[in-house]
Amino acid sequence: MSSFNRRSFLLMAAGLPLVAGCSFEPVYGPDSAATRLRSAILVDEPSNEDQFELVRQLEHRLGVADNARFGLSVALDINEAGVALTTDNRTTRKEVIGAGTYALRDLSSKEVLLSGKVDSFTGYSTTGSTVSELAARRDARRRLMIILADRITTEIIAKADTLPV
């Protein structure tokens, strides 16, 4: 171990007491607000393939509701646009742009407790065969639902301490 590495290690070790006193708490720590939300949110039933994938991802992250206290509704707005053209005006790449407007409500009072909007995009190539293009399109939409589910989950967990116990 060189002396430079030892100095770096010693400096890092000296800073650990400072980090320990910063009141950092893990999101899923014991008795945290996010832990109490696990399996307590019932996501509305999907009505199409995109919503099905979104619900699946949300249940994967938040847990399947076995004793639901909250309901979660998500309205999706998905659009596709060509973003790369050849010289003869053929689209070679498409972008899938999506937004999800969500509302978390108390199931007993029907009061909306949290709401917000998340958005993102993915893309896919249209230069292959018809079958490969369809597979790429489906995969891009699935990836978009994963991103939106992650963002919705992050926003709900970040505001979990404002929800009633």
Results as ranks from 00 to 15, higher is better:
72 L>G: 08
104 L>Y: 05
124 Y>V: 00
77 D>R: 02
127 T>G: 04
123 G>N: 12
74 V>M: 03
132 S>H: 13
105 R>V: 10
65 A>K: 03
114 L>A: 08
95 E>T: 00
112 V>Y: 10
118 V>Y: 00
70 F>E: 01
76 L>R: 04
125 S>N: 07
78 I>T: 12
120 S>T: 08
131 V>F: 15
70 F>Y: 05
124 Y>L: 00
72 L>D: 09
79 N>Y: 01
65 A>H: 04
65 A>S: 12
109 S>I: 06
73 S>D: 13
116 G>R: 00
116 G>Q: 01
108 S>N: 06
128 G>L: 06
101 T>L: 01
69 R>K: 14
80 E>K: 02
110 K>Y: 15
117 K>N: 12
104 L>H: 05
98 G>E: 01
78 I>S: 10
110 K>Q: 10
93 R>Y: 13
122 T>R: 03
115 S>I: 07
129 S>I: 02
105 R>I: 07
107 L>V: 14
87 T>F: 09
90 R>Y: 01
101 T>I: 04
99 A>S: 11
90 R>N: 14
117 K>G: 07
120 S>V: 02
83 V>I: 13
87 T>W: 15
99 A>T: 06
113 L>C: 09
132 S>P: 00
98 G>P: 03
82 G>E: 11
126 T>H: 10
124 Y>T: 02
104 L>V: 11
73 S>W: 08
94 K>Y: 09
108 S>E: 06
80 E>M: 06
119 D>V: 00
78 I>H: 09
81 A>N: 12
89 N>I: 13
68 A>D: 02
118 V>A: 04
114 L>V: 09
103 A>T: 10
98 G>L: 03
92 T>E: 15
110 K>W: 14
78 I>G: 06
110 K>D: 13
91 T>L: 11
